[in-house]
Design a protein around this nucleic acid. Structure first.
Lengths: 356, 356
DNA sequence: ACGCGCTCCGTAAACGTTTACGATACTATG
DNA sequence: CATAGTATCGTAAACGTTTACGGAGCGCGT
């Protein structure tokens, strides 16, 4: 490879210092807002940097001070994620960034390849020291990643709870609260056989969801029937499959709670194929409100929340557990279940005992 | 084993060298596969690195050799993107990674915040030298970013064409080909007033799409009517709006081509509100095949493609324009329109002249 | 005069790696 | 035996930045 004899342009702080006829130490201090530099020289330095388009080389900086000013958001583009994530991650990302940018932190997304073990991938990213802190998503029931990050002393927060690493910081949608509310609402309308869907994978939110459902049933004195818990992919196809399985049951449920709004599309379709009208013959409650759920007929009863604000909260939780920032976000609650608001629709608007 | 028990975490190549009683130069050469190192010592070094969990610090490495082994994929999480991107980016990402990982390159996603100018954001990322090369998406009609990257001599490729930076490498869905094919098909069924939708933003694919449509009409001797080109967001709501606007026209079109499949959901809904049945009273052709389009009734005629393979192609295009890799991917065609395959549905299955 | 504290700035040593260069031992060749 | 060539390895200089340290200049109180 040409390793060349051309006089390199020396694009660095050194050139900037020479151009200003100041030592590079002073230039660096001026740029980084250190106190012991004359205000007037600082102005000169900043002006020159702006004019010459100088930006500190990240490698040099982070080599010296062991910090990168980059936060990583790890996502596993598993097939299931790919099929249903839609705007979820990007919306949360917006909230995260709105906080990080205030501290000159940049967010990058680390997509773990399908064919690579998430744990190994994360280990590599950590070892490379490319990020100062991490946000983990799609937390598993037991998730080795937490222990690893704790041992490596990398600050992190999770988008989702987990059973492992008990005390780690997280923010999570209030899955059990939603299941609870949905059951209450359906029971109040006379339903007693209520089905629920949960993801097929080991992702923890499914367990939390079903657990909330189970406790709510218990509170109402309704026996918990495992046959009414359907494991399915969180997609339209999954919803179709849920309906399919429920139709096969001898003692069919009169209501169903779907963990992803998109599933309702497939669910509607399948039951209508069987001549069953959602909102008249069976009650349906979905999870998050989503633009495309708005077009369902009858309108889906679901739960609204601001994913953007959830991102904001999660960012603050992360910063509060980073030594360099916890003086700015002190005592922030390290674990936060994020509330959702009921959006009543027509899909469960009938009372069972009064007929349709 | 020299020191029994658990070795404490590696601090750097220096400790690894001391542990092996070899100079750090040799260790580095061994790890990087340089030729002038004894095969047997190399094995020892690799084994020790594996055992002690040593991974080279990326900052030190990239500071020295000016390379990071990271490829950045810039995405602008604009509101429009957030609403319709669904699995698009993650799927393409999978294809990209399958190529990059063969060369020990990692892909990171750089999400430009809504409130930041994409150009400034990119400039910052480039200046920080955090990536070796870039993939740009959502290319605008005229896109300053290309010129900037060219001037900064950063290798890049684009997911999407542009009018600026004429000779830059890119891969792009065959928007004009699809528009062309759709028009041909509709004309063959007797349609002459054919509407088309295009995004409201300056994203280039809209122009390419409409241009293909315009030329196809011209070929059939059908006059181009600007009133039939509807600018709308690429979402269900956008589709609803397209239908709404078309219904207001005095001389209503008999067919419509939608640039995003999701729009069909809203479109169906709106025309059915007006008592118009898609596939009987109006012909509808969508763009990409998507899981949720499968649930439309009648089935949407649309176009299928593998976004994963598009990612593979794009990765190879990028590598072929990187000095360090172009010997591996020589003479790869630098610009590639990616084909789509027609998936006939029922939404345009009627012949206009024979009635319904 | 002297010392002290303060403000500002220059010097140089890190940070962890890669790599050009030279050194050593050994082998093959003349 | 001298020399050249080869295989292998150690040494030290970069890469660009931050920062501990010290020094110069100055004002001020004793």
């Amino acid at each position: 490879m040409a390793h060349g004899g051309k006089p390199r342009p020396m694009k660095g702080i050194r050139q900037l210092a020479e151009h200003l006829d100041i030592s590079i130490g002073t230039v660096s201090r001026a740029l980084n807002g250190k106190p012991d530099v004359n205000e007037e020289t600082r102005k000169r330095v900043l002006a020159a940097a702006e004019q010459l388009g100088y930006v500190a080389n990240q490698s040099g900086r982070s080599l010296r001070q062991g910090t990168t000013n980059v936060i990583g958001l790890m996502i596993q583009s598993s097939r299931e994620t790919v099929e249903n994530s839609d705007n979820f991650f990007l919306t949360v990302t917006g909230g995260l960034q709105s906080v990080f940018s205030r501290h000159n932190l940049d967010l990058i997304m680390l997509p773990c390849p399908h064919d690579e073990d998430p744990y190994e991938y994360l280990k590599r990213m950590v070892a490379r020291r490319i990020v100062d802190a991490l946000i983990l998503s799609e937390t598993q029931r037991v998730d080795k990643r937490f222990d690893m990050l704790a041992k490596a002393k990398i600050p992190f927060a999770a988008l989702g709870r987990s059973l492992s690493g008990v005390q780690h910081p997280w923010a999570d949608l209030d899955f059990d609260g939603v299941a609870n509310c949905a059951v209450d609402r359906l029971v109040a309308r006379g339903h007693r056989r209520i089905a629920i869907s949960t993801p097929a994978s080991d992702i923890n939110l499914g367990f939390v969801f079903v657990e909330g459902y189970r406790r709510a049933l218990e509170r109402h004195g309704i026996p918990y029937d495992p046959a009414l818990v359907i494991r399915a992919k969180s997609s339209e196809q999954g919803g179709y499959q849920v309906a399919d399985e429920l139709l096969r049951l001898e003692d069919r449920p009169t209501a169903v709670i779907l963990i992803y709004e998109l599933m309702a599309i497939g669910f509607y379709r399948r039951v209508m194929e069987a001549g069953i009208i959602p909102g008249r013959d069976i009650a349906v409650v979905g999870f998050r409100e989503a633009p495309r759920a708005k077009f369902l007929q009858p309108a889906l009863t679901c739960f609204r929340t601001s994913l953007h604000d959830l991102g904001v909260e999660l960012a603050e939780i992360l910063l509060s557990s980073m030594p360099a920032y916890n003086h700015i976000y002190p005592n922030t609650k390290r674990q936060r279940t994020w509330p959702l608001e009921l959006v009543p629709g027509e899909s469960d608007a009938f009372h069972l005992t009064t007929g349709k």
